[in-house]
């Protein structure tokens, strides 16, 4: 879905969101209360610059608007694959973005991620995946790598991976698989305003993803292994 169409559905035609290159930002009013919205578009690669731009808004929100809920709108092709970004410490910039969102959460800001188009590994891990919880639209796509590329890297036959992806959510792209594994809390269908309202009211602030993955059958071991380490003699 186009970001403009999404925020129009969520916040009406006078939402006030701004687009600056691949970066989205705005203060919207929802149910009479202000929400900070931060996002990317055009399947943006997340490099140092875009990671810092997002962190800036998060830190400003924490400093100037204590407690204001924050919505992260996610559309990314993953981290920027450039030598200059590695030289400049892209991993440190990503960690800074993640730590900023984490600080907001600890200070009582409700932070909600929404994958509205595409989410990939490095661009996703310090945004939606470090929010209180992440949601997705049904036609969004989430993955680490496409199956042909995965076949090359792992040296496993593409047919085998494709076949396994039918039965095991671990291998295949797709928001439904991320829901089954607990990585995405729920899909937003139909009335998006109602979905946001529900998320703002009921998103947990603790990390429930491993338990959700076990209950939903998509990630059967993680929660049990965590518990075994906690209980080990």
């Amino acid at each position: 879905m186009q970001w403009n169409s999404l925020v129009t559905q969520l916040f009406g035609p006078y939402h006030g969101m701004r687009e600056d290159g691949d970066f989205l930002q705005g203060e919207v009013i929802f149910d009479g209360e202000p929400i900070a919205v931060i996002g990317t578009t055009n399947h943006a690669p997340i490099g140092v610059r875009l990671a810092l731009a997002q962190a800036r808004v998060v830190l400003d929100t924490v400093a100037q608007h204590p407690g204001r809920p924050t919505l992260l709108l996610i559309d990314t092709q993953g981290q920027q694959l450039r030598r200059r970004d590695e030289l400049l410490g892209i991993n440190r910039a990503m960690a800074h973005l993640g730590a900023s969102i984490d600080l907001a959460r600890r200070r009582g800001h409700r932070v909600i991620g929404l994958v509205y188009d595409q989410a990939l590994s490095g661009g996703f891990i310090t945004s939606g995946l470090i929010a209180d919880a992440c949601y997705a639209l049904p036609d969004a796509e989430i993955r680490v790598m496409r199956i042909p590329a995965m076949a090359r890297v792992t040296k496993l036959p593409e047919e085998k991976l494709t076949a396994l992806s039918q039965s095991n959510p671990v291998f295949a792209p797709g928001v439904q698989n991320y829901v089954a594994m607990g990585g995405v809390r729920a899909l937003w269908r139909g009335d998006l305003q109602a979905c946001l309202r529900e998320a703002l009211a009921h998103t947990p602030t603790d990390d429930r993803r491993a338990r959700d993955g076990a209950e939903r059958g998509g990630r059967r071991l993680a929660a049990a292994v965590v518990q075994r380490v906690l209980d080990a003699a």
Binding site: D102, F124, I125, L129, L156, G183, A210
Partner: peptide, 26 residues
Amino acid sequence: GVRLHEANAGLIAVSEVMRSLLDVRA
């Protein structure tokens, strides 16, 4: 980083490590 043989589970797992590490640090 993420083990590609179990890509989706690995990605979520790394983010869970990140959150729990930040809990310990906090």
